[in-house]
Each structure stands twice: as C-alpha cells, then as structure tokens.
C-alpha cells in the first residue's frame, strides 16, 4: 500500500514527444525559467499550455518539470508529502509514459522533485531541483485584486499591504494565524507566495542548496528561488515568525523534527499523529516496521 509502481513498469509511449510538450514550448518555458532565476521571487509571465489534467492539479508544476526533464533524470513526485496519493501517482505515471524516465520515492536519489504542499524533510543537496505546483502566485491578490496595481507595487517594492494581513490576524486571533502559504521576502527584494506549503517548511526555503522553481498554470506565472538565496518570512518585531509544534513525535517513526498529519483511526475519537513525508517516515522505521503498519491500520 505504501509502494508505488516499481520503476520501468510502464512503457514509454512512442507517439508523444518526450515529456509530452513540444520542443518549442519547452524552450519558451525554459526561457521564462532563466529569467525567473535571474530575478529571484519575481513572477514571470509565460504561455501556459493546456495540459491533460485540470487546473488546480498541478498544470504549472507539470509544465516546468516537462521543460527541464532529461532522459537520464530520476523523478520523484509528492503530494502533501506523500508519494502514494492520487495526484503524485498520476503525475509520476504521466512522466513514465511520456518520457520513460526513472522514478523513485527516495528523496536523496531524485534529481527533480515535483511537489504539492510540502518540502521533503530530508535536506536537499546541490544539483537537485524542487518544482512547486502553485495555485495562486500573487501574495497580495486577496487585498488588492487589481493586477495592474500589484505589479506596480512589486516594481516599486511597496509591501506595506502584506503587513495589513498579518495585522488582521493578530487583531482577530491574538497571533499570526496564517499557517500555510505564508508570505516570504526573497533576496531582500520581492515578496513571494511560497505556494500552499505549511509555514513549517518556510525555513527550508532559506539558503537551500537546491534550485526551487514555482509554476502556476492557470495564472500563467513562473518564479524561482536560486540555490543559496535568502528567504525570510514576514513578521512583526513583537510577533516574530514561528513554526507549528506538536506535543509528541510521529506515532510511527518517533520523529519530533518533522511535520505531522493528524490521522483518525476509528469512529470513537481515536487518532494519531504521523509524518506527512512518507519517504522520510518509512526510511526511519526500517523495512521490518512496514508490515506492522499494514496490519495495525
């Protein structure tokens, strides 16, 4: 139940171009990516294509991955930290069929990791690329719906508005209640939406050795955080940025350093907290524990 399709079980479809998109489209997207890397945190418009999956399922991320994927790359796809949820399984199969690339669930072995909602717990290394699926690239959109205006505000670095949102949180809840998609300042210049990752993952964005690429298919925007770039989470002096904490460790692997999901175990209020990063959790448990999970579930 935890394992996905073993690599190579799917045949590469010879009737589609490598990684589905045509070469000119991939080149166009790579140009946008290069520009994005040059201006960390800046949203670059690109000609987003219609993909064979609905908006909101990762059309932006999948186009970025398709554009940078090489035949010898090893791909990992996660959704909410897990390798075996519907979104992750389908995007992984998509690239197995269209590109015939090797896939893995092992974070350390992957060259490209496409992700939705999480950054892996295992620290990334140089040479790896993390591709985020982004539903709403504009961090100020909720408070300022005019795109002409938000672009101008980015251009002039007028970011007072971002603190209005944080002020509202403290005024209404007594603390900054934003827990995911927590706005960050990239390279001390552009305010950026880190996509809906929990704010627990925000510190991992900072000075990461890996290249981080963000694709928003519906909104037609690409942005990037190059390796070793400063990424700070916005906050007030007297209400500093904090990440979530849990009272106990993971029920399966005992980790106290990872992001935990609450899982209901029965209809009588039984619950447990387990790592959301399935690869991290299994590797910590060792092979023998895997049978216990499937028996005891």
């Amino acid at each position: 139940m935890r394992m996905c399709d073993p690599p190579g079980s799917l045949e590469r479809d010879p009737n589609v171009n490598f990684a589905y998109l045509d070469e000119r489209t991939k080149r166009m997207i790579r140009r946008a990516l290069l520009k994005a890397v040059c201006i960390p945190g800046h949203q670059v418009a690109f000609g987003s294509r219609e993909m064979p999956l609905p908006y909101g399922w990762g059309t932006g991320g999948i186009q970025v991955t398709a554009s940078i994927l090489g035949p010898r790359d090893v791909l990992k796809v996660i959704d909410q930290g897990s390798d075996d949820t519907v979104n992750a399984v389908n995007i992984r199969r998509f690239f197995q069929r269209t590109a015939g690339v090797a896939v893995t669930t092992d974070t350390t072995r992957a060259d490209i990791i496409q992700t939705r909602h999480r950054i892996p717990e295992t620290p990334l290394r140089e040479g790896q690329i993390l591709v985020f699926q982004v539903p709403a690239p504009e961090p100020m959109q909720r408070l300022e719906p005019r795109q002409s205006e938000t672009r101008k505000m980015h251009g002039l670095a007028e970011y007072g508005l971002m603190h209005v949102k944080l002020y509202e949180d403290i005024a209404h809840y007594g603390h900054i209640a934003t827990t995911y998609d927590y706005p960050v300042l990239v390279n001390n210049r552009y305010v950026m939406s880190p996509s809906p990752i929990p704010k627990f993952d925000n510190p991992k964005l900072n000075m990461s050795p890996a290249l981080q690429l963000f694709g928003a298919g519906r909104e037609k925007r690409i942005y990037a955080v190059p390796p070793y770039t400063a990424v700070t989470s916005l906050a007030f002096d007297d209400h500093p940025f904090e990440v979530q904490r849990w009272e106990s460790g993971c029920a399966l692997c005992g980790s106290r350093a990872s992001f935990l999901d609450e899982v209901l175990t029965d209809d009588h209020g039984g619950r447990m907290f387990v790592c959301s990063d399935s690869d991290y959790c299994t590797s910590r448990q060792g092979a023998d524990v895997r049978s216990v999970i499937s028996d005891g579930g």
Binding site: G160, H163, Y167, A171, D238
Partner: peptide
C-alpha cells in the same frame, strides 16, 4: 479597504513606511 478592520485601515500607511511593531501600531 472595506473588508479590513478599522485599525488596519488607519495604520496601513505606517506599515508601508516600514513600521514593524504591532504594539505601537495598535
């Protein structure tokens, strides 16, 4: 900003000028 609290409406300009202390803004 019609859907933002009165307090945040009043101090938005101060935040734009770089004030980052919630207590003082309040």
């Amino acid at each position: 900003r019609m859907h933002v609290s009165a307090g945040a409406n009043v101090v938005e300009r101060q935040m734009a000028l770089g004030e980052r202390h919630y207590g003082r803004l309040r």
